[in-house]
């Protein structure tokens, strides 16, 4: 069973690969529910559920599980936000954003590992799960931002705005859970590490971003236009990637996988 559940992982990877291949070739399904990606999400959900049961903890510990949950959240956020015909163009970049973390996870050791005592708490699943859900919405924001910058369209603009707002909301709730957990585990809701600092950067960045739409457009630099807002929405994914992977791979932080 321990190895068998990985079949679902490989099948979901194949489905995501097929979706990205079709999208890049210009072939679009008639609706998101009839897409390989939708089938991939179902397989992926089954994989994560079985792995949760097998390991006895939320499958969000370590780089492999983090990447595959990241991919899953990107797909779910896309399915929630890119349902209309106007926003379906976002699936071209988004299918790649779903595929890449899953493909990255495929290269990593997939063995089930027990949790360290500090991670053995319900706050672990809520903190990490909500944070990754936020990351998923921010990935959808990149795809929708690209669509708006290339083709315009009010539907893409509104959906990108929702991606920032929903992502910010999930990430904020994740930070609250993380603070409560840290208070019980380490003795303080806040510690000075690069990971914590970058988490606050993500929070401030998207908090600021959700305010941009209320600034009236005007002449001169930077103009405060919708294009600026969409550019910032797309760039936000870079901030997220630096927080998720950059800090762990480039900077020394005790709060890492």
């Amino acid at each position: 069973m321990e190895d068998a559940h990985l079949i679902l992982f490989w099948l979901s990877l194949a489905a995501y690969g097929a979706e990205a291949g079709f999208r890049l070739a210009g072939v679009a399904p008639s609706s998101p529910r009839r897409s390989p990606l939708f089938a991939g999400v179902l397989l992926h959900a089954a994989f994560l559920g079985i792995r949760w049961v097998l390991s006895g903890h939320a499958p969000m510990a370590g780089l492999f599980e983090s990447l595959t949950v990241f991919s899953f959240c990107c797909a779910v956020a896309g399915l929630l936000l890119c349902r209309s015909e106007e926003t379906s163009m976002a699936w071209k970049p988004l299918s790649v954003l779903v595929l890449l973390p899953q493909a990255g996870a495929a290269l990593i050791d997939k063995r089930l590992t027990p949790l360290y005592p500090a991670l053995d708490t319900p706050w672990f699943a809520t903190h990490v799960g909500l944070s990754f859900l936020g990351y998923g919405f921010f990935a959808a924001g990149l795809a929708l931002g690209i669509v708006y910058l290339r083709s315009g369209g009010e539907a893409a603009y509104r959906a990108a705005g929702k991606s920032a707002l929903y992502g910010f909301s999930a990430f904020s709730a994740g930070m609250v859970c993380g603070g409560i957990w840290a208070y019980y585990a380490w003795g303080s809701y806040w510690i000075w590490t690069p990971k914590e600092i970058w988490s606050v950067i993500v929070w401030i960045y998207f908090a600021t971003l959700t305010h941009l739409k209320f600034i009236p457009a005007q002449g001169g630099w930077p103009g405060w236009t919708k294009r600026l807002e969409m550019g910032a929405t797309a760039a936000g994914y870079g901030v997220v990637l630096l927080t998720f992977l950059g800090v762990s791979l480039l900077l020394r932080s005790s709060h890492s996988f």
Binding site: W198, V200, I201, I204, L251
Partner: peptide, 10 residues
């Protein structure tokens, strides 16, 4: 400032 700080800490 935060990004600069995360590098400075290391």
């Amino acid at each position: 400032a935060g990004a600069a700080g995360s590098v400075a800490m290391g």
